[in-house]
Structure formats: structure tokens, C-alpha cells
Design a protein around this nucleic acid. Sequence first.
DNA 1: GCCGTTTTCGGCCCGACTGTTTTCAGTCG
Length: 566
Amino acid sequence: MKNTKVAAILNRIADLLEMDGVDFRTKAYRRAAHTVEFLSQDIEDVRDEGKLEELPGIGKSISRKIEEILDTGTLQYYENLKKEFPLDFEALAAVEGLGPRTIKLLYNKLGIKNLQDLERAAKRHKIRRLPGMGYKKEHQILENLKIAKKGTDRILLGQILPLAEDIKEEIEKLDVSRVEIAGSIRRMQETIGDIDLLVVTDKPKQVMDYFTSMNLVDDVITRGSLKSSVRLKNGVQVDLRLFKESSFGSALLYFTGSKETNVMMRRIAIRKGMKLNEYGVYRGEKQVAGKTEEEVFRKLGMQYIEPELRENRGEIEASINDELPELVKYSEIHGDLQMHTNWSDGSDSILKMAQTADKLGYEYMAVTDHTGRLKIANAMAEDRIKKQIKEINRLNQELDGITVLRGVEVNVDSRGKLDVAHDVLKNLDVVVAAVHSGFRQDREKLTARILSAMENEDVNIIAHPTGRKIHYRRAYELDLEGIFETSRDTGTFLEVNSQPNRLDLKDTNIRRAVYAGCKLMINTDAHSANQLSNMKLGVATARRGWAESKDIINTLPLKKFEKVLN
DNA sequence: GCCGTTTTCGGCCCGACTGTTTTCAGTCG
């Protein structure tokens, strides 16, 4: 997949053009980059079919440039631009308050190319003497430089969601009539840059005072009458905006984003002779919608788009054509089919897991402790698997309301064989297979391993199919199309793993799998009872991948689920 | 540079806040 590389170059071109104040051409490159980045196909395949120009935002000029990148690995136009501005734009732009115009000014007047140059110039008070700059700006640059140098990663959704909900609850205690979390958290994006809060209140000053002086706050970035931003002690930025009830829907829509989706929606409004902003839909001066999101969509002649879909990946067109999927619901999950107990590397007993799963409203769950050679995970040998089966049988007699299925998570070895014998596996209800070693094999070998596991009649599920760990390990090189095909043909389910740093398959791959006709299973892979609540992250990811309940096997009630499993 | 349910030319999303300005440019979301 060269998609990422092509998109990166197109984005860099946009950066460089932006420094020169080129406006609309910049936007064109950004749009093309977005298209390529989230394309469900390999860009090389699209080129081979001669269909580059059919992609949204890609015309003659950019398609030729893409071909050049694919053919030569580089692009002359881009190389020339880089020569004009030989500087580390990305690093400099990561400093809050530094945009393309300022970066250009700093380069032209002071020759600043990177963060070191910037720091030196600021400390020698050279920046404050530049036109449009001053003492405050220079001071601000020095402050924000420290943060930029830390290279703050985006934070995992699973980490930030509880924090955002805590802050929301705090603000709800004030004199407010409504508080909502917007932004990428509401879209349930896998990683999050900041927290966006929208508030309706009759006491704006009280709310802003409280917000900017919360215990968690390290620094107030801006403080206005309608909008304030703070940085928390853990480095996370939180923005809070006040709105009237009559604008709340359009505000929620706008601040939920994504940015690209907003731009598309505003264009649609213009085409219909209206204007859309965060205060509402306007015909002339008159507000004609805005109280609720539903109202805004209706006014624009669109189907309501769930927040998880708002990424400008085709949902706008689908909405206009009444073709949006009916997304799987958070409440539709009837069971969790991968979890670990204190029989291997989990921290809670089977009973504790079962009681917690029962409280979550599940009808069934599978205990899938590690087996065979995975010694660091306290894996079970075959005699202990048999013992555990007996223990689960006994528990099922005791338990009421939830059925515990007997399972294991087996390892797929470097040649695609399982590390537990068929004689043992045949007595189990659920066999989860996963790659836990040899990640560095090449694409062919890794793909062959997984295909071979899928063709094994004992295997029901392939867990965390691509092996990626966000911020830690890239996905293995795999022929995903081949895997999807075999998954469909053998009836082997692909997992959507709900661990906050896995979310594997990820959203865009889920969409490809669903399109290919695969059936998926959303599991938590919980290693303790409290991790069972991570299910919502997996469901969110499936929703972002346009999955419907028919695509997700564990939305089935127990009887039907068992039938499908066999 | 892209695009078309008014258009193959003339548009291209829009507002809050800050700092450095006497009226606005730049940044951010």
C-alpha cells in the first residue's frame, strides 16, 4: 500500500503552498490527500485501472503527480518546492500558534529551519523585533516549544473517555441546562487530540470561571466570553464553548466534525441557497434550523448521519441518497467471546468474569485462556485445559442468566500450525486463533499462516488479525483481500478486538471486510473483569467501519449463535 | 487545482480569539 506515502507527499505540498499564501490550490491538495489516505483500495490498483481521475478531488494535474510518485518514488514538483523552503515544516507547525505564514516569516527574516533555530532566536529576542511579532508572541513561542518538543502523541480513546466524562459531570453540577462531549471523542476516533465540550447555561461567567480554575487545569490558553481553552496537568487540551439552546444542534454538529464533513455540509447548504454555521441553518438572516442535529440534516435534505460515520468517507453521498447503513447498536451485543482469567494471564476468576458479564446484560461469554507455548502468559497445557472444561461445566450448573462457553486462545506457529491438538480442541465451544510470534516474517509467510489457521476446521475466530498496537507496533504486512476472501469462504470469523490500543481490525479494514462479505465478532480480550466494559470501544470501531448487526455474529441470541458456531 | 441540479468560468466554509494593530492578519478548530 503506497496510499500513506502518496497522501503524505500531497499534504506536504499543501503545507509548502500554504506558506506562500496559496489558498484554494492548497485546499485542493489537502482534499486529494484525504481521498488517497482513506481510500479502501490500493492506490496502485486504481492507477492500473486508469481510474485515478474518478476519485473525488483528483483531477488531471494531481493524478499525473500521483503517477509520478508511484513510478519514481518521488515527485519533481515537490522536490523543487522543498528546495525553496528547506525547513522542517511539520516540527515547526507543531508549535501551537505557529502557522504557515509565521513559519515563512521566520525563515525569510531569520533563517529558522527547525526547532533548535527557533529556540535560539526566541531566547536571543530576535523574534519580537519582526513585523507583527512582539514580546508576547515570542514568549508564547518559547512556552509552546517545550510542549512541541515532547511530541505529545494523540491519546487513546479508551484512556480519555473516562476523563472527558468526569469533566462533563463536574460541569453538569453547575447552573447549566446541557453539557455534551463533541469532537473526535463523540466520533469515537481511536485516538484523540483534545476534549471538546459544549454547554448551554444562563450563567456564562460562573461556568467559565469554574472551567478555567478546575483542579485538573495546568494552564489557561484562551479565555473568552463564549470560548475558553485550558491545558490539563496531563497535557490534554480541553475546549469549552457556550451556546444557546436554539443553536445547540448545529453547534453539536459543527464541533463533532470532522472538519472535512463540516466543509461538505456547508457546501450543500450553499447549494440550496442557505448558510450553515455553528449557530444554525440560515436563509438570509433567518434561522430555519439548528435546535437539534436531526433538524439540520432534515433541512438540508439529508438522512441523519451517526457521529461515528462523519469522516467524509462517502457518508455524505450515502445520506443524500438515503443509502446509509443501519449501524450495529451498542446495546445489541449479546456475548463476549474472548477473555482471560486467572487460569492464564488474567487477574480474575471465571466466576467473577461471568458475574460481570451477566451485569453487562450478556447472554453468553467464552473463557479463552492462553494455551501451549505462550509461557509468559502462563499458558495452559492440555491437562489444565481439560480441568478448566470441568470447572466451567460445574459453574454453568450454578449460574443463572449467563452461559459460559468453553474456549481457548491458541497460537498460530511460524508455519501456520496450532499449538494444541485436534483431540483437545474438538471438545471446546470456541477456538480463538492468534499470531503471537514471528511478527517480522514477510507478507507472504504471515498471510499463509493466517490462511492456514482459517482453513483449520477447529478454528472459529482469528483474533486481532493485523497485530497492530497503537503507538507501539505497526500492523503486519498482510494480503488482507486474500484473508477476507478465505474468511468468507471458510466461515471463520474475524475479530474486532476492543482493547484500547488494539482496535483490530480497525475501522477502515472493517469496512473492507464487511464489503467482502466477512462476518465479524467484537470481543474485549479482557484480562480483568473491569476490562469487559471496553466492549463499547470495539462496537464504536465497528460502527466507524459501517458494520450492521447482521455483520456481527455476537449480536445473535445464544441459540442462533451456537448454531452458527457449529 | 477541482468542479458543476444555476456554472466549462468563477467560485471554493466560517467564526472566536489573540496580539499587534489603529482596522486586521494569523491561527485554530
